[in-house]
Design a protein around this nucleic acid. Sequence first.
RNA 1: GUGGCCGUAGCUCAAUUAGGUUAGAGCACCUGGUUGUGGUCCAGGGGGUUGGGGGUUCAAAUCCCCUCGGUCACCCCA
Length: 423
Amino acid sequence: MDLVSPRGTQDLLPPRSEAMLALYEAAHRSARLFGFRYVETPMFEHTELFARAAGSTSDVVSKEMYTFLDKGGRSITLRPETTASVVRAYLSNAHDLPLPFMAYYVGSQFRHGRPQAGRLRELRQFGVEIIGVDGADADVEVIALTDRYLRERGLTKTTLFVNSIGDQVCRPAYRKLLIGHLEPHREQLCEDCQQRLQSNPLRILDCKVDGKKSFVLDAPVISDHLCEPCREHLASLLAGLDRAGMPYEHDPRLVRGLDYYTRTVFEFVSGALSAAQATVCGGGRYDGLAEVLGGPPTPGVGFAMGLDRVLLAMEGESVPLPEPRGLRCFVVAVGEAARASAAAFVDELRDAGLAASTAFEDRPMKAQMKMADRAQASFVAIVGERELAEGVITLKRLADGIQKTVPASDAVGWLTRLDDWTS
RNA sequence: GUGGCCGUAGCUCAAUUAGGUUAGAGCACCUGGUUGUGGUCCAGGGGGUUGGGGGUUCAAAUCCCCUCGGUCACCCCA
């Protein structure tokens, strides 16, 4: 039996697992701070949901999905992203949900690509969606949440890039214009871009190979060819970011792979990660998605943040990972006879809300002290024959070795009112 | 999914250059340094089918093939 986890997955163990947990907890705090409500959607969906939402030409759909037939013969896909699920869930429950619907989620996504650092087959994401608002203030709000979250994690080397990719009105027209500009140079394009000329010409602008060629640099950019409503939306977004004091770069070549994006697109890119996987968070507006899924026209905007990458970026910037709080007190029982009293004291501590633990077996005191140390306990309580005889408990603060013997009845108090230890 | 690099104890590595006796070290882990005190120090100990399979050879960690995994770039995205 091979004991390694499947390709592209990882076991998160202490202390890294606890750093990830801290990211989850912070995600909940941040989202709720902005008024988002927690949602859970299924880890798998009917394949059709993702196929319709993302567009069958996108890479995510054409080659990265974990798709299988269930025992009823249905085509099922492990979620590669969650926006489509949230919108589906919204549409099917719209009659009793408030508008705007502000939802957030935290969880795993699955994409079958070739793994490398910062690109896993099971990846953890934190995301939010605002459904039902078409004004740019909603866009500013989700960006502000991301910005705050990343800053509070201690990241300083991230840059926000924004752009507008137009809507159903101006994008097709721009697309035609762009193809017209590039068509005469077809022969000079790389193999990929010759394909993209029909499938996704906007991508050619940020192609690693062709992006620097003069006829590509001269190509028209979408932000110069937006329709009036889209132009206003972009202006309003940028004004909002300025007002909120968030630095950004307007990158007219920033594009998005999923078909449902309209108008606003944005990315937070970390300078602490290798360039190919440096996007820590991506998002944008998807005003066309609800209709694609068969619902009424419903605007939406959101982001998805890759928490595995956030963790890597923190490590890359040498941000100290949040220290998990250890035990308040490890209770050492000296001798078999003391174990019952020790167990009772542990229970008393837990009743008082203090994390406490003790050895599961009668072990030498030295070994128990070592256990306390490794449990990162702040204090050790010693319960032995002497203590039992006198009705006291010996407390030791591990950081400096200061030790006090106190009445057993007040021991919990000593471990609660830590200011008594200032001596 | 395409191409390059890599794969020795839990971790970081040595031994691979021209195949040659029981594959080493540091850190980590466990146990001791007597009778009630962790984190330091000292001593000892456990742990490796050299990712796996096949081949060449008297002999393979070392050479060849396949495979699995990691990593970097691409595709694309978080």
